[in-house]
């Protein structure tokens, strides 16, 4: 176990012990260790790296340290700045988890139910990755989540850059109980008035957050960006259905004219209805 004080020291520590596993809040990692699924040869603790536990403004973006806890992200200052991210951080787990779990940990462990992930996808956030020898590279968070690009050995996510959109954003989550629980489905909806665009991402229904791009484009074209920015209920409902069908499509026959595939099971149909309701409510609240 090493406890480096800077990002570069941490990267060096990982390079020195390639088998070491970095640990920040440990809310996912330690559960795997305790259940015997994981037995890391060594740990590099990221908790003492002050530089990644804060945040700053940078060219119209917020540069968020990967070590920011979910509890910190849920506080009112963030809620005013990046409302959807704050809402997702508040919705994540019980207080004990939020006090320990970090933004970077959420991104790197990339659990399908990670609550901040659809928000990062909808915001088109970028991960700033620190590598050996002081190298830095930038990768869209969605690429990391989709596995299009991976963290290389010895690399760490240092920061997450989030554009400041100065417009309403929502994050809605459906769970199995009233108390804290894992998402059955979640929806992040953000408005980007500068680019006249609505962006939406659906979490927990697939291994990574899903972006219904066509539905986004369609609904963006309906909104009067210079005026009231409201939509009639039918349009909101249609958007919800559009998103849900894109995220949970009907099965297609394997070949042209082949056997029609079996219909979706009731559980999947319920999930689709849930996604439709979340997307509709999310956009409705963002435009209200």
């Amino acid at each position: 176990m090493t406890l480096p004080g800077t990002l570069d020291e941490a990267v060096a520590a990982l390079a020195a012990t390639p088998a070491a596993v970095p640990v920040a809040g440990g809310t996912d990692l330690m559960a795997s260790v305790n259940s015997g699924q994981l037995r890391p040869a060594a740990l590099v603790g990221l908790g003492r790296i002050g530089e990644i536990r804060g945040w700053e403004y940078l060219d119209g973006n917020a540069l968020l340290g990967a070590g920011l806890t979910l509890a910190r992200l849920g506080r009112p200052d963030f809620a005013a700045l990046i409302p959807a991210l704050a809402a997702s951080a508040r919705a994540a787990g019980p207080a004990q988890i939020r006090n320990a779990g970090t933004l970077g940990g959420n991104l790197v462990s990339a659990a399908p139910t990670g609550d901040t992930l659809p928000v990062l996808a909808a915001l088109e956030a970028t991960a700033l990755i620190a590598g050996p020898g002081g190298s830095r590279r930038e990768v869209p968070a969605s690429h990391l989540l989709a596995g299009m690009e991976m963290l290389h050995a010895g690399e760490l996510v240092g920061y997450v850059r989030v554009p400041l959109l100065h417009a309403p954003q929502t994050f809605l989550k459906a769970t199995g109980r009233t108390g804290p629980g894992r998402a059955l489905a979640s929806a992040a909806v953000v408005l980007d008035p500068a680019r006249r665009h609505v962006r939406c991402a659906i979490g927990a229904v697939a291994p990574m957050p899903l972006r219904p791009l066509e539905a986004e484009q369609w609904v963006s074209s309906l909104i009067d960006w210079d005026g009231q920015r409201t939509l009639p209920p039918e349009a909101l409902a249609a958007f919800g259905d559009y998103v849900a069908m894109a995220c949970i499509p009907d099965p297609q026959p394997a070949t042209e004219g082949g056997e029609p595939p079996p219909p979706l099971p009731p559980v999947a149909l319920h999930l689709r209805r849930t996604v439709a309701a979340l997307a509709r409510r999310g956009l409705g609240r963002a435009l209200a």
């Binding site: 919705a91 769970t175 109980r177 009233t178 929806a187 409510r281």
Partner: peptide, 12 residues
């Protein structure tokens, strides 16, 4: 009011 789904839930 605490709606179904909890304090940060999606209840409408």
């Amino acid at each position: 009011w605490l709606l179904p789904g909890g304090p940060e839930g999606a209840g409408e």
